[in-house]
């Protein structure tokens, strides 16, 4: 029995003179993932930070875009590949729309990292199942690459990724690499096919029949839209996954990222500091609106 306190609360607070002051960071590259998602590769203006900025997979930063305030964005790169950080962002509202217009050479603001990371230590020695929908692959990309970079420490890896349309499939570069690696099963599915699509059709939970997992040895990491999370969690519980080994991320409106503003309050917890990573066991104890 794994104690869920093993997933410890992250108290990774930077000791700056101003809790809210971001660090300038320059865009060095923009990767267009699909029509809605772009990955921004960033380097801090303060060069020392490029090596000193230590983070773990699953954590997020507060990203400032001039005149548009801030938004929480998961780090989609892995700490095992230092030097720059990747943020993969989907267009959602004003800030993200403004961000998508930005080009290499322009500067953004970053403060963080914040939040409780994925519990990589309890994953060691176990099989791993990653289930993602849409932009939900951004935080999982970080942990998947992290696990790949630390070869031999984990069992088999299965990656399931759902998109609405074939043209919505993001992170193709990564998916291509993962599909070719030995010991990894990587399946993609779409809700609605388009001409020329020969792959799986249906929501991500229709892929269960195509994979082999043994729930007692496996840790599942699930990220995506609330509806997807709800159904995937339900199915995993049905397969008798232990709730301590089903890990997901929750999304809430966020303003401060450091547990002060109250926006991300959820069932008595704060998503920014107590999460965004939660185990299914923890979520059961809370009363979460969208999982009801």
């Amino acid at each position: 029995m794994i104690n869920r306190d093993l997933i410890t609360r992250n108290i990774n607070s930077r000791n700056t003179s101003n809790t809210y002051l971001p660090h300038p960071a320059v865009i060095t590259e923009v990767i267009t993932e699909n029509s809605q998602i772009k990955t921004f590769v960033l380097e801090f203006t303060d060069k020392t930070l490029n090596t000193n900025f230590s983070y773990e997979s699953g954590q997020f930063v507060m990203l400032s875009v001039p005149h548009h305030g801030e938004a929480p964005i998961s780090i989609s790169s892995t700490p095992t590949r230092p030097g720059n950080i990747h943020l993969s962002v989907r267009i959602a509202g004003r800030l993200t729309t403004a961000l998508h217009k930005m080009e290499p050479g322009m500067t953004l603001g970053i403060r963080g990292p914040y939040g409780r990371p994925f519990p990589v230590h309890i994953m060691e020695g176990r099989d791993l199942l990653f289930v993602a929908g849409g932009i939900g692959l951004a935080p999982l990309r970080s942990v998947i690459n992290y696990c790949l970079d630390r070869t031999g420490r984990y069992g088999t890896m299965t990656i399931l990724y759902g998109s609405r349309l074939p043209s919505d499939i993001a992170f193709r570069q990564d998916l291509d690499i993962w599909s070719t690696l030995p010991g990894i099963t990587c399946l993609t599915t779409v809700d609605t096919p388009e001409p020329g699509w020969t792959g799986h059709v249906g929501v991500v939970t229709t892929l269960w029949d195509h994979i082999q997992i043994s729930p007692s040895d496996c840790t599942a990491l699930v990220c995506g839209p609330p509806m997807m999370i709800k159904f995937v969690l339900r199915d995993l519980a049905g397969m008798s996954f232990s709730p301590d080994f089903v890990i997901t991320t929750m999304e809430r409106h966020m303003k401060c990222g450091v547990g002060l503003c109250g926006h991300c309050y959820m069932g008595g917890k704060l998503v920014c500091t107590d999460g965004p990573v939660f185990s299914m066991a923890e979520l059961k104890d809370m009363d979460i609106e969208e999982l009801r």
Partner: peptide, 23 residues
Amino acid sequence: CTCFTIFDRMESTETGKRIRAWD
């Protein structure tokens, strides 16, 4: 009640302030 929000108030095309306000 200490909840607050944060937003940018643009003062010119080049400058602005980040503001926190009661929410």
